[in-house]
């Protein structure tokens, strides 16, 4: 860990917390069961009184741990940020504790992380989808979910029956055509993502 006052405080109170490589602010990898204690210490003793963001990162299928929840805190007095990351132990049913008891701001951020990744926040009073509609069956920001989406029914049964419209995969014509991240220059040539050929034609085999 870099030597900052907040790092010293965390190191002293929570010896199991490790530093996390970060481009800017102090960042820590916290075991999921200690997250609430670390957040509370940062809020009450280190002056990080604003919860500015909660999000998650999906490392991809096959990585373990797959899902990592990330919290960003801000201090109105010191004007600095701190980042906490906690890995979810189970990739099939990812869960971390909910910070709604510490900040009411956590409520909507955690609903969004649940909606996009399927991470359950234990202790959240009202964990339901916020950006997609309630019956949507998938978690869109997971790496195994295609950008074009998967077919499902429209949220409203009456309108679906009247117009015969469905939620269809967007016609990406073999795209998105992009260089895969995290590759070296020779393998970084943009390749077709091969998602949803068009809605009228299947992808030629």
């Amino acid at each position: 860990m870099t030597a900052t006052p907040v790092a010293a405080l965390i190191q002293e109170r929570f010896p199991q917390v490790a530093g996390r490589p970060s481009g800017d602010w102090p960042a820590f990898n916290v075991p999921a069961d200690q997250v609430l204690a670390v957040l509370r210490t940062l809020r009450d003793e280190a002056g990080f009184d604003v919860l500015t963001d909660i999000t998650a990162i999906d490392a991809g299928l096959g990585h373990s741990p797959r899902f990592t929840a990330v919290w960003h805190l801000f201090s109105t007095t010191g004007h600095t940020y701190v980042r906490l990351a906690a890995a979810c132990a189970d990739a099939a049913r990812p869960a971390v504790p909910s910070a709604t008891g510490l900040w009411p701001a956590a409520n909507w951020h955690e609903r969004e992380a649940y909606d996009m990744f399927g991470i359950a926040f234990a202790g959240h009073p009202d964990l339901r989808r916020i950006l997609m509609w309630d019956g949507y069956p998938y978690f869109p920001l997971r790496k195994d979910f295609p950008l074009a989406g998967l077919e499902t029914v429209l949220p409203d049964a009456e309108v679906a029956a009247e117009t015969a419209a469905k939620v269809q995969a967007a016609p990406l014509m073999g795209g998105p055509f992009v260089a895969p991240p995290g590759t070296t220059m020779d393998e970084a040539e943009p390749r077709a993502g091969d998602q949803s050929w068009t809605e009228r034609e299947e992808k030629p085999r």
């Binding site: 869109p140 074009a148 989406g149 117009t163 419209a165 967007a170």
Partner: peptide, 17 residues
């Protein structure tokens, strides 16, 4: 037509409904 948002959440053109 859905514009530049070719994604899972966007109806590709309001003429579908």
């Amino acid at each position: 037509t859905g514009g530049m948002y070719r994604s899972y959440a966007v109806l590709q053109g309001v003429d579908r409904i």
